[in-house]
Amino acid sequence: MKFVIQVNEGPYQHQTADSAYQFTRAALARGHEVLRVFFYHDGVNNGTRLTSPPQDDRNIVSRWSALAAEHGLDLVICVAAAYRRGILDESEMKRLDKDAHNLAPGFRISGLGQLIEGVVLADRLVVFGD
């Protein structure tokens, strides 16, 4: 079955990102296809590679990147939510004339249309948030 997963909250403050990750991993292990993971609202904060938790804590961001590398997951960060919160890739850094970019490996920035298109193509939308 084809899934789209929506993540509405950032890492660490809420269990949201953990639940979404565990669900995504379980869905893949069950042989399902995860068409897209869409990070929306504060969920875009899951995509900054500058995340640096203490050594005894999980790295929520690199965990997503690793899952994407292993399974070819499409991790999409909502563009409007991302720019508001300072999540940028290299080309947008240049375009917006900023001095840094921070998008983590395996993530890409795109529009809300990606969520809607994914949901139309998928069999299930599962939303995690606060």
């Binding site: 379980a26 399902h32 939308l125």
Partner: peptide, 20 residues
């Protein structure tokens, strides 16, 4: 249910509504 069971439930039911 565990996470795999959660996945199975989302398949068994036709849609998922999250009360956030």
């Amino acid at each position: 249910v565990d996470y795999a069971g959660f996945v199975d439930l989302t398949v068994e039911y036709e849609k998922v509504q999250a009360w956030l």
